[in-house]
Amino acid sequence: MNKTLFVVILFILAVVLSLLVGPAQLNNQILQLRISRAVLGIFAGGILAFCGGILQGLFGNPLVEPYTLGAASGAALGGSIGVLVFGTVSPFLAFLGASGVGFFVYTIARLEGGLFRDRLILAGVVMSFLCSSLVMIIMVMGGKELYEILYLLMGYLGIIINTTNRILIIFLIIISLATVIFLYRFHRELDIISQGMETAAGLGIDIQKFSLIIFFATSLIIGFTVSIVGAIGFVGLIIPHIARLLFGPKHLYNLPASFILGGTFLLLADTLSRIITVYELPVGVVTSLIGVPFFIYLYKK
């Protein structure tokens, strides 16, 4: 219970810090800015870490992260096409790209025999490479569009939520949270599936159907996240490990912990990214800077 308290306090601390700390004097406008960042930070960090935890469980592979199945590069491709066509990154096309790649990955994975689950990873990696090279082509050919795509690839939380985009973002957050709760129902299946496919089948889990549900549900919300804040790295890979180190292998406990810790870490990292230097460091850089020492400390312990 101590650990739960620790995590909750850390979370509250991160929220308060992110609202109070920054280079500017707080006023109405600055507060709007910081609340936007805090909301997006909690949302994106939570979703990415949660999905990372689920996918690492499903694939029984600690190196899997939310972007392994191609969502990030798909969103980047969709976003880049949007830049070419409309001159600006549209979250809708980014999402379409992420889900489109998901569909291709699924189709490729179904083509040949063998275990569907393992081929998903391979298909995801292959599709990621394809999308990355297409994005590269667009970047090299396009020139000035490059910067928008760069931000989509690096991730950026500084999007202000105002009256024009508020409804969309709230809508996406609600759908994502509903999906998170839906996925959380499968915590027992994930525990079991980590011990192997045959074990899971023997205990009454329909592996193919289950993999498919997880794959599409996570692709959906990862696509949402990337389309709004870009492909923020690290959180989805390392936070699930930290959650397991703190709360053990049971997904009943470590999945919610991943969500909260992911949000906390991204918020802290974003706060730091605003104050360390005059310019804004990419938030993904800072997540690794504070996350890795913490991870090593826990691992040693």
Partner: peptide
């Protein structure tokens, strides 16, 4: 009940 040939204890 089914006991498979191999069980992975990844976690």
């Amino acid at each position: 009940g089914f006991v498979p040939q191999e069980t992975h204890f990844a976690l």
